[in-house]
Design a protein around this nucleic acid. Structure first.
Length: 230
DNA sequence: GCGACAG
DNA sequence: ATCTTGTCGC
């Protein structure tokens, strides 16, 4: 009964497309929307945020928050996509209908390839929406080489049976690393390049940080720099 | 064997 | 994820 989902993840993982670092990098222009998403939960509903930045300049465009019913599937490490994934899809579908939003890249709070079966939530979402995705997590799920330098920008590979499936990134001086990995339709090099490019000045990737602030405020009934859609 | 385990 | 204040340090 856990074998089923493992098998399903292994099957779906084969459909995931990770570009080679030798392939052309993902190019983003001023008209490309880069969306970073997060979710907050209350006792009776879930709030999903979608933070949009300009794909060329990285400047903030807008942050939307949508409200949904709580997931019925319980959260389990390794099966995060079954819990939170459908909420992300629902939010994006809603924004597609309401404002014709079509993301060129989606960055999620969780892992992509850097997952025991190479199928983190970023991979799952990428397949669902047929769009490039990146996973950007605060804790590792697979081992990483413990040789990270202390300087901002230092990297060390995350390994799954000798295969590099992501990197630990020292996102700022003297802070714990964050963990990034490609989800779908992107290479590891492009993943690292884009995360560094849009990262900002704190430990957490700035657009994800904004998305987090937006949903937690919205879930508490507070106002902020976001549009609550309902 | 025991605990830890993305959010 | 969520329950939660001040405080030390860069």
């Amino acid at each position: 009964m856990r074998e089923d989902r493992d098998l399903e993840q292994e099957v779906l993982a084969k459909k995931v497309i990770i570009h080679s670092d030798n392939d052309a990098p993902l190019k983003l222009g001023a008209n490309d929307a880069v969306c970073s998403m997060d979710v907050a939960y209350t006792e009776d509903c879930a709030f999903v945020s979608c933070d949009i930045i300009n794909g060329k300049t990285g400047e903030w465009v807008n942050t939307f928050v949508t409200i949904h019913e709580l997931p019925t599937t319980p959260y389990e490490s390794g099966y995060f996509a079954y819990y939170e994934g459908p909420l992300l899809v629902a939010c994006l579908e809603y924004l597609n209908k309401q404002i014709k939003l079509k993301p060129s890249l989606v960055i999620v709070d969780g892992h992509g390839l850097a997952h025991p079966r190479k199928f983190g939530i970023a991979c799952w979402l990428g397949l669902q929406i047929d769009t490039p995705t990146i996973g950007c997590a605060k804790k590792p799920l697979v081992p990483y080489l413990d040789n990270l330098g202390g300087a901002k920008g230092s990297l060390s590979p995350m390994l799954l049976d000798d295969e590099v499936v992501g990197v630990a990134l020292r996102s700022n001086k003297n802070v714990k690393p964050i963990f990034i990995s490609p989800g779908h339709l992107i290479s590891l090099d492009s993943t690292i390049y884009l995360i560094k490019k849009f990262h900002g000045e704190y430990r957490i990737f700035e657009p994800i940080r904004r998305a987090d602030q937006a949903v937690r405020k919205a879930s508490r009934g507070e106002e902020g720099d976001f549009e609550l859609i309902s």
